[in-house]
Write a protein that binds this DNA or RNA. Sequence first.
DNA 1: TCCACTCACACATTTGAACAGT
DNA 2: AACTGTTCAAATGTGTGAGTGG
Length: 460
Amino acid sequence: MQPIRDLKHNFSLPPPPSMAGSGDSYHQGNIRMTLEDPELWRSFHEIGTEMIITKPGRRMFPHCKISLSGLVPYAKYILLVDMVPEDSLRYKWNKDKWEVAGKAEPQPPYRTYLHPDSPAPGSHWMKQTVSFLKLKLTNNALDQHGHIILHSMHRYHPRFHIVQADDLYSVRWSVFQTFTFPETTFTAVTAYQNTKITKLKIDHNPFAKGFRDEGTNSKRRTNRSLADPERAPKKTNISKDSEHGSQRDLDDDAGRKELEVKCEPYSPWGAASDNHALRADSPLCSDPRDMYSSEQLVPGHNTYHPNRYQEYGKSPSPTSSVGSGSGCVSRSSFESRVPDVATVPDHDATSKPPVPEFAPAPCPPQPLTGQQDYTGVLNMAIAQAKPGIMGHHPLYTPYSTEQSLGQWNGPPSTQYPPPPPPPPHHHLPAEYSSQAVHHSYHHGNVGDWSQYPLFSYSCW
DNA sequence: TCCACTCACACATTTGAACAGT
DNA sequence: AACTGTTCAAATGTGTGAGTGG
């Protein structure tokens, strides 16, 4: 069993070399995205964030909330979120840390969450924080609600995309700016594994107030005590009226667990704690922000989306946010210093590697079938999104999948080059970038860009 | 036997309709 | 008639614990 920490040291790698982007006066560059509640995210991240996934769909907590600046106030933008696998591994929780449990499951249908306000002018996005509160995660591969489908016991991180476009159809000719925040990495689970995560969730999620120790739910606390597998055997007839004893047990147990936790620097990702190691070893360790800035340079395995977009390799510019003091950061932000890029189809093939017209589905480790899950998802997004989001283009419904899929899916995958094999876990591809501009400058029909997993829109 | 997963449950928050008052 | 504020029930979001199945 391979300790997780062995897989994570790439966080300390230097940023990819900066690449010059093409200037374009149409875009007003320097888009900056800031993650809200970074402290909360960080507190989870340090323990090892877990997100519950259920069949009907479960919200994230903490939920993704960002703020934006640097947009053109009058230009319309679309905001998207998708979930990127951190690696091609499956994990399991063993006692007090995560361990590799084998190769990842075949990638479920890839979906992207479209912010319900999309499209909206830059002024709209910038005037307030943008919340993805209603984004839901599910493990139901047949989900018809447009939730993002993930595998349990796999690691992901959310990826935010800003697209300057008037509607979904023009997205594919538009420039993508992509942002990730390493502290938002999480493990999808069907039940919490790490009790510290559970406690954090209960402490911070208002819906879980009833489970707080200081809460008013004495009955629940009693039940919790009674049912504590470590204190009370399952299915034994413990008298339910022993509230005092139960409470004492609960407190006692909590204290004991706390002691256990304190016995060693806690890290669910291996005893040596890559986080700690990072802090200790990295020259950036003196400032948490710097640490995260470093992480943001290597947010995820681009390999999973080998043909999704062009990585321009601009050095992301993590910027200290307002109020960031010595080691105390209120927000984590990322500023795009990408030169402005035209939003028209980009033909400057010389400035970037060629992108296959019909990219294979982007999710290793196994090649996908080429079938993207658009059925019942896209049309839901249409139903939910603002009128006009699809412009005058025809709508596709799940009841006409024959046509729509035929149109939305690209040609047979035999046309495409095979996806590159997943990289070794320790390898950090040079093209990794936490933020990039993507040109979807295809010239084919809608089916072309439907190859992008990004365009399985959901909006709930 | 282990473990990932599902389900029903109790509790808290959110939402929105209905109503009253201005 | 329009607006605002209050109340309340329903809907929704939580983690828990028991049970199931591979």
